[in-house]
């Protein structure tokens, strides 16, 4: 699924160069649940952006489903983001004053075939909302939803194009503990039921434990990469 080799990323900030990534090599098979931990500035977000095709590496290679996406032109990257990748953000990033259903439909406006017809858009968005258990909130606006519900809408939006890779950057950062676990349970279930590959960034060790493996970033490098056997058991409970 993901095959990253020697990934490096540098930024020019003022006079000095920031090395956000200094050569990251990582492979993840389809259906793996990778959690990424590490302190702020360790490069995990940059890594995530490159994985999500929002950014290109300065050097190194990124194969997504065997295809080198590190050098693709912008429109092609947009297409990869649309078809293959789903994003979940810490701040939900839902459109205000827009119903949950319309929010979920959003990626369907940018498919390769152009805008999906409104009936089909509606059906697929409802199916995605069903997957996160929010069909009864389809008409609600984000302001009428709790944080957990909002994040579930965001997950539904990530799912609506049926991606094979789901990336979440601190998805529980704005949620309380109970809700956080609910959200993580959804991720675990999606991986189990649909075989979606998950990459989740988190600060919290108990959230990281949902992964089948946890990768620890520090100063732009992976310092540890360990399988998470215990959570495997929890996941099958």
């Amino acid at each position: 699924m993901i095959d990253v080799h020697g990934l490096a990323k540098q930024y020019q900030v003022g006079d000095h160069v920031v090395h956000a990534l200094r050569g990251v090599t990582l492979s993840a098979a389809a259906g793996e649940f990778v959690t990424i931990v590490g302190p702020s500035g360790s490069g995990k977000s940059t890594f995530m952006h490159i994985l999500g095709c929002l950014d290109r590496p300065t050097s190194g290679r990124y194969l997504l489903n065997g295809r080198d996406v590190s050098t693709l032109p912008g429109d092609e990257l947009a297409r990869v983001r649309n078809e293959t990748i789903g994003f979940v953000f810490q701040g939900f990033n839902l459109l205000a004053r827009t119903s949950a259903l319309d929010n979920v439909e959003l990626p369907l406006l940018y498919t390769r075939q152009g805008v999906v017809k409104s009936d089909e858009r509606r059906n697929r968005a409802m199916a995605a909302l069903d997957a996160v258990g929010l069909t009864d909130r389809a008409d609600h606006h984000p302001s009428q939803l709790s944080g957990g519900q909002q994040q579930r809408v965001a997950i539904a939006r990530a799912l609506v194009t049926q991606p094979s890779l789901l990336l979440a950057d601190e998805p529980t950062g704005n949620l309380d503990t109970t809700t956080s676990h609910e959200v993580m349970e959804i991720f675990a279930r999606l991986r189990r039921d649909r075989g979606i590959t998950m990459v989740v960034i988190t600060h919290e060790r108990d959230i990281a434990a949902y992964g089948t493996r946890t990768v620890d970033f520090r100063d732009g490098l992976i310092v540890s990469d360990v399988p998470n056997v215990a959570r495997e058991m929890v996941g099958h409970r």
């Binding site: 929002l54 429109d75 947009a78 983001r81 078809e83 994003f87 959003l106 940018y110 498919t111 939006r157």
Partner: peptide, 9 residues
Amino acid sequence: LRMAVGARR
């Protein structure tokens, strides 16, 4: 966000 979910420039 729109770009992240696949909107082209």
